[in-house]
């Protein structure tokens, strides 16, 4: 019994320790970000790797999620004779929750894991040390551009995800089922508020972008420099990112939509 408590205690302590470490790393990234912004092409390159290469999976998944939402939404709403409201349902569920969250989860497993793997391998092959010995700060040259690439990509990807999802819902509702096109859009517009729904969703996805990018670069930079260490770090990136996204989503939702 005492053993369990001891284990829990040490787990909690190492968790707090890790949190402090990651916070210090975050401050370091911010401190050296200026240097990496001076040479924008480094960040643009990372935008390509984390943004453009995630585009396909985001667009396709967004479409499918929208199609499913359309079908389920119609199934439920037609019981109450209000199938025109399916545009509202699809748009609100995508903008507020599914867009940022699902896009964030996909982004973590597609781009976050790749960033961790890349930085981890650079550490294994002593490239980071070599850079440091050449008086080039690896945090400014390698970590910060990857971090900002992720932070910028994430809200754009989430917006594309939601847009594709709404398109999918429209496809099911208007094209296949025959909901009135005008009613679909006007009901949606009447119910969706720019500040409360769209901006809050964008804010959420930006926070997820910071979280995923930070976890990804940290796990890569902090990994044990062996093949096994890198593979563990990649797993940790995906798992911690998913947990961070879902936990942060709960916290933000309870603040944003309180009393509405």
């Amino acid at each position: 019994m005492g053993d369990v408590f001891r284990k829990l205690g040490s787990l909690a302590i190492s968790g707090v320790w890790q949190l402090g470490f990651i916070a210090r790393f975050f401050v370091l990234i911010l401190r050296y970000s200026g240097q990496s912004f001076m040479r924008l092409h480094l960040t643009i390159r990372e935008l390509y790797f984390s943004g453009v290469l995630s585009l396909l999976i985001i667009l396709v998944s967004g479409l499918f999620v929208g199609l499913v939402l359309g079908l389920q939404g119609y199934e439920i709403l037609q019981r109450y004779g209000s199938s025109e409201a399916m545009g509202t349902m699809v748009a609100l569920s995508l903008l507020r929750e599914l867009g940022p969250v699902v896009a964030g989860l996909l982004f973590a497993s597609r781009a976050g894991s790749a960033v961790t793997a890349e930085i981890g391998l650079m550490k294994v092959t002593e490239q980071l040390k070599a850079m440091d010995m050449m008086a080039v700060n690896p945090i400014a040259r390698v970590v910060a551009p990857r971090f900002w690439g992720g932070v910028v990509s994430m809200p754009l990807l989430a917006a594309l995800f939601s847009t594709m999802g709404i398109f999918g819902g429209w496809l099911i509702g208007v094209v296949f089922i025959g909901v009135d096109d005008g009613a679909f859009w006007s009901q949606m517009r009447a119910a969706v508020d720019f500040r409360y729904d769209v901006l809050n969703g964008v804010f959420k996805s930006a926070v997820f972008g910071v979280a995923v990018a930070l976890i990804a670069v940290f796990e890569g930079y902090d990994c044990v420099p062996t093949a096994e260490g890198v593979s563990r770090a990649i797993t940790r990136t995906v798992v911690s990112s998913a947990l961070a996204i879902l936990a942060l989503d709960f916290v933000m939702t309870s603040f944003m939509f309180r009393g509405l």
Partner: peptide, 26 residues
């Protein structure tokens, strides 16, 4: 490619802002 990506993302945001939502303040 990055330019295309960013343009698409901004277009999506504009679509969400103008076509999907109504701006309560405006």
């Amino acid at each position: 490619w990055v330019g295309v990506f960013v343009a698409m993302g901004i277009a999506a945001l504009l679509f969400l802002a103008l076509k999907v939502a109504s701006i309560s303040g405006s």
